[in-house]
Computed example of a mutant assay.
Amino acid sequence: MSAPRILAAHLWDNYSGSPRVFAQALTALAEERADIQLFTSDTEGFLNAGPWTRRVVPYRWVASRWGRLGRYLWSQLYLMVAVWRARKGADLVYVNTLLPFGAALAGKLAGLRVVYHLHETHVEPASLHGLLTGVVRRCADEVAYVSDYLARVLPFPGVPARIIPNALPAEYVSPGERLPALYRFEGLMVASLKAEKGLPAFAQLATDLPDLHFTLIVGAGAAELEAFWRDLPRPGNLTLLPAQKRVKAYYQRAHLLLNLSDPERLPETFGMTILEGMACGLPAIVPPTGGPAELVREGVEGYQVDSRDRAA
């Protein structure tokens, strides 16, 4: 039997959760002898190297909302043509997140099986969200969700679905010894560079608790972090770090893991950093809804707190 040939697509490679999970999934498929072509950006991230052939899709993040939308739509036209040209001999189009809809359209037109791996609940603006979910309804042969919560809030009636919780990376299966703490108390948060991820709330928490230390690692470069933080408080007890290839040592030194995502504006669908932190022995403070509430039981692994409630 010949090895299955997979055309995989992810929009924006970086060191955040969705490309990391996708890299794990593609590696597992490659271990089963799958031949994989991966279509993604030429940025640095978890998909940079692996058992696949990488095809670059020209997409770059820009600050302008309209400029970003224009580049995104162009990238999807490019992706659609690229996947169509690669269709010969392929068995499956594997689309990571809602965003690479060009790959799904090409797969549908080519008569290939299209599988979505979904991590997010919503994409803005609402018109774009409607377009992307419409493509899923019309093109997907199967949808894989990262949590029961996501399957409930983003259903696609008539499309076969399964729940595949994110897997703990191999390096965390045996977390190793705790490392010497750098501070008397350190609260750690690892998040994407979005206000909805609770970054302003984290800055305010550090301001309100000057006797404790707080460390934030964001999935973005140093220049993006500096530009984002220009108008936010930066007290002396707050350490800001750009994306890190190896985060485990930070978990091993910290005392508490925080996830302060806004449960209304951007509900977390899983929370890989929560799983990693708990594997290293950290209690966690997480939102009271979404995927994190499936991982952290109140008063057992940690506490469920709405980050909008400063009194909590």
Rank of each mutant, 00 (worst) to 15 (best):
233 P>M: 15
233 P>A: 14
181 A>F: 05
124 E>L: 13
110 A>Y: 03
259 N>H: 10
36 I>K: 01
165 P>E: 14
3 A>F: 06
301 E>M: 13
29 L>G: 02
67 G>N: 07
251 Y>P: 04
86 A>C: 08
286 V>T: 15
71 R>E: 13
215 T>S: 15
184 R>A: 12
118 L>N: 04
179 L>C: 09
153 V>K: 09
215 T>C: 13
69 L>N: 06
52 W>L: 04
105 L>D: 05
13 D>V: 13
4 P>I: 04
270 F>I: 11
90 A>L: 00
65 R>Q: 08
67 G>C: 06
234 R>L: 12
76 Q>T: 03
48 N>W: 11
225 L>C: 05
255 H>I: 08
254 A>N: 07
134 G>P: 01
252 Q>F: 07
275 L>A: 13
8 A>C: 04
168 L>N: 11
226 E>D: 15
256 L>D: 01
185 F>V: 07
12 W>E: 14
244 Q>K: 06
61 W>C: 08
269 T>F: 05
248 K>L: 14
227 A>P: 00
41 S>G: 12
158 G>V: 14
258 L>N: 01
286 V>K: 10
210 P>M: 09
148 D>K: 07
276 E>Q: 10
51 P>S: 10
100 P>S: 01
151 A>D: 14
132 L>T: 02
15 Y>F: 15
10 H>W: 03
76 Q>G: 01
290 G>R: 02
306 D>I: 04
40 T>N: 00
145 Y>D: 06
274 I>P: 00
136 V>K: 06
298 E>R: 04
89 G>E: 10
90 A>T: 06
265 R>L: 15
191 A>F: 12
255 H>S: 12
273 T>L: 01
23 A>N: 03
54 R>Y: 07
257 L>E: 14
301 E>S: 04
84 W>N: 07
208 D>E: 12
223 A>P: 00
72 Y>I: 07
27 T>K: 02
